[in-house]
Design a protein around this nucleic acid. Structure first.
Lengths: 202, 202
DNA sequence: GAGGAAGTTGGACGTTTGTCCAGTCTTTAG
DNA sequence: CTAAAGACTGGACAAACGTCCAACTTCCTC
């Protein structure tokens, strides 16, 4: 575990290695992520990876941590954007789905979920990820006026992740439509009710 | 690729190796599944694994195929059992959740989902798995009288798998209650309506 | 510009990996 | 009983692995 103080250049190179590691994780899985593969993806010699990380585990865990922070930042931006968007609950849902479908396929996310059971060091990372995702979902549900945001939020995240992992396993063309339909199914009863109240006929 | 004809004893040993491989996949992930680890789990010498499988990939793919067949058989049994169960839609849902929560944590299932993108040979396996799961879900929805079983079924599977992968990442004590609540959330509108019709008050 | 710390890397090390083979034992068909 | 094919395995091999180190360069500080 090299505990040297990093200068600006060093910090940049370290982060480049982490992003290269995330690429490799996506392509080969965590088990297939080696010093040499990461170094090749980053375009640096192998010894660079051991200069910045004391072990392959340290590298892997730091990479997944970076992934989660990036993903949280991305989702917070999406959330903020969607909240600014003026429209009915259903319109907001469509806008949200468009943003969610935009992200690159998040193999690393699911590799992380599975890896926690084998690496206790990852537990804080996954806890932070999941609780943030749920909090964001809860905020959005509350924003569109759902009556039980806290109860539903975890299932929204589960459904989205479930669709995500199925998308990786068996890709469908229109990812956005899939997410819209899935979320509609989960929010259907309440959406129809909201729609009825918005346009009171008869 | 040893294309020898297997005798009864050989077939049994081959299958024992596959089940040992599934154990290892659950514990170490696909990337960590080696000839030696599988052999150790099965209590046989290393050379046994190369006698029955031409390569580690062949072993891995056969193991995941066996997993899917086992899982399909299990879910078909669960489905049959639940269909036989007399009760309201909600009661059936609770019974289903109890059965679903019973299975051992299916790390292999998700390892499979992620591995398809790296091993085209697994595509038929994952296609068979997902379409069967969806068909079973559709059958159950139809059995309890849901008006749109075909539309909802894929999302039921996504939600269950999403909760499954979250359960692996961040285990909660009462898996059964989680599944019940999740399914209720997805079926809520329709469940309340069914309940209202069953007990017409006022 | 001198000294020290950070950055950098070729090359080496012991280990673990996938795979193979030669040889032995066991079962079955005739 | 014999012969052939299946079942089995100890030990070896090259390749890939994680890790380390000594030596060199670059950068910052005083």
């Amino acid at each position: 575990m090299p505990e040297r103080t990093l200068r600006a250049r060093g910090r940049a190179r370290r982060e480049a290695l982490l992003r290269a590691a995330l690429e490799v994780i996506g392509e080969r899985g965590i088990g297939g992520t080696t010093h040499r593969a990461v170094a090749a993806a980053a375009g640096v010699p192998v010894a660079t990876t051991t200069y910045y990380f004391g072990s392959i585990d340290e590298l892997l865990e730091a990479a997944l941590e970076l992934y989660v922070e990036d993903e949280i930042a991305r989702l917070e931006a999406v959330s903020a954007q969607v909240v600014d968007f003026a429209g009915s609950a259903d319109e907001i849902l469509v806008a949200l789905a468009a943003e969610l479908a935009g992200g690159d396929s998040s193999v690393a996310q699911f590799e992380l979920y599975l890896e926690v059971s084998r690496r206790p060091a990852l537990q804080p990372v996954v806890t932070r990820a999941l609780s943030t995702y749920r909090a964001l979902a809860e905020g959005l549900l509350r924003h569109v006026g759902h009556p039980e945001p806290a109860r539903l939020a975890p299932y929204v995240v589960s459904l989205v992740d479930g669709m995500g992992v199925h998308q990786i396993a068996l890709p469908v063309a229109d990812r956005e439509a899939l997410i819209v339909e899935g979320l509609r199914a989960l929010l259907d009863p309440w959406l129809s009710q909201a729609r009825a109240e918005a346009a009171p006929s008869a």
